[in-house]
Nucleic acid binder design. Structure first.
Lengths: 125, 125
DNA sequence: TGGTAAACGCAACTGTGTTGCATCTTCGCT
DNA sequence: AGCGAAGATGCAACACAGTTGCGTTTACCA
């Protein structure tokens, strides 16, 4: 764990938005702890490997792992301010189990992302 | 509607798997109706615009639009053979409505993809 | 059948992510 | 504290996907 990697993880944890490699690179420079873009990619990969981060759906943006719920990451992303909120929904889990039965697929993983406006952005819109 | 575009649409409709621009380009060449890769991109974009195709989740692969259900495309993709099956689930819709209430987000769109093994691939595995 | 608007192919460009390699930092060990 | 191996860093070059510009060809309608 180097100081560069520490700064990267701090940045990711301090921003409510899912950040991509490019944004991380730019923001680290702005904060006075610049890191080569290649190193950003490598560090993000390493932190994903360690299970400290997870990707937000298909994008390359990442979020810290909350600790609980190892695999199943659901998020709503605000189209206004870009912030993400993760959630866990029992009815949703049950509905997915129903899909499993209906389609005959043995489901290994599911990816779900919702997009919309958060309460704050709805307010000042 | 040119013959090239016709061949492209036929190809997409004849394969149960979601196909990306690269695969479409390769397969069209193989079928004796080659099309420039740029034209594949442009034609896919045009067909998406016309509402005849839709993207499968975050990827660039496309599927024909079934006709019903204009916006809400859910799919299970087989990790074995790559074929996709689309579905519609009322309980799932209800669960998403619950998430909307729980998070306070005004949800504009949702993307959902499931990955697993289809019945056939489970059989000969 | 002639003319126009759209589609096409080619080439060059942009943006994103990866690989190779030499250098530097971290960290365990004495 | 000093040493040495393992791993992290930065730079340059590369690989790949997707886009744009432009001159040419094709489809469609009068």
């Amino acid at each position: 764990m180097t100081r560069s990697r520490r700064a990267l993880l701090d940045l990711i944890e301090s921003d409510p938005r899912p950040l991509g490699p490019r944004e991380l690179h730019r923001e680290l420079r702005r904060r006075g702890t610049p890191m080569d873009l290649v190193s950003v990619y490598r560090n993000v990969a390493a932190l994903l490997e360690l299970g400290l981060l997870h990707r937000v759906l298909g994008s390359t943006a990442v979020r810290p792992c909350a600790g609980r719920e190892p695999r199943c990451h659901h998020a709503v992303v605000c189209t206004g301010c870009g912030s993400a909120r993760e959630f866990h929904s029992r009815p949703l889990e049950r509905a997915l189990a129903g899909v499993r039965r209906a389609t005959g697929f043995s489901i290994q993983e599911h990816l779900l992302e919702l997009r919309g406006l958060c309460a704050a952005c709805m307010g000042h819109a």
